[in-house]
Amino acid sequence: MSGYHRGEIAVQERSGLQRRAASAERAIGSTVPEVAADFLARQPFVVLGGTDERGRIWATQLTGEAGFLGVPEPDVLTIDALPAPDDPLAGLLSGAGEQAGGAAARIGMIAIEPATRRRMRMNGRAVRDGDGLRVHLDQALANCPKYIQERHPRRPAPDGGEERGEHRGGVTDGDALSPAQQETLRAADTFFIATASDRGDADASHRGGNPGFVQVLTPRLLRWPDYAGNGMFLTLGNLELNPAAGLFVPGWDTGASLHLTGSARTVWDPDEVARVPGAERLMEFEVTGVREIPAASPLRWSEPAFHRFNPPVA
Rank of each mutant, 00 (worst) to 15 (best):
G212D: 04
H136F: 12
G160V: 12
D189E: 03
D253K: 13
F191P: 11
M122V: 11
A157C: 13
G229V: 01
H167G: 13
A244V: 12
R186K: 11
L234F: 11
G231N: 03
G208F: 00
R164L: 15
S178N: 11
D198S: 14
I148L: 01
F192R: 02
H167D: 15
L247P: 08
G161I: 11
L137F: 01
V249K: 08
G231F: 03
V171C: 11
R164V: 13
R220A: 15
A180M: 12
G209T: 04
A245W: 00
L141A: 12
A140Q: 08
F213G: 06
R151E: 03
G200I: 06
L185Q: 03
R134Q: 13
P145N: 03
Y227Q: 03
G262K: 02
T218C: 01
L177G: 10
G170S: 09
T184H: 10
N238M: 03
G161V: 14
D173L: 13
G251Q: 08
P243L: 00
A176H: 12
H206F: 00
L133R: 01
T235N: 00
K146N: 13
D175A: 15
R199N: 15
G212E: 06
G169F: 02
Q139R: 14
S263E: 14
T261M: 07
R151A: 05
R151H: 07
A176G: 09
D159N: 14
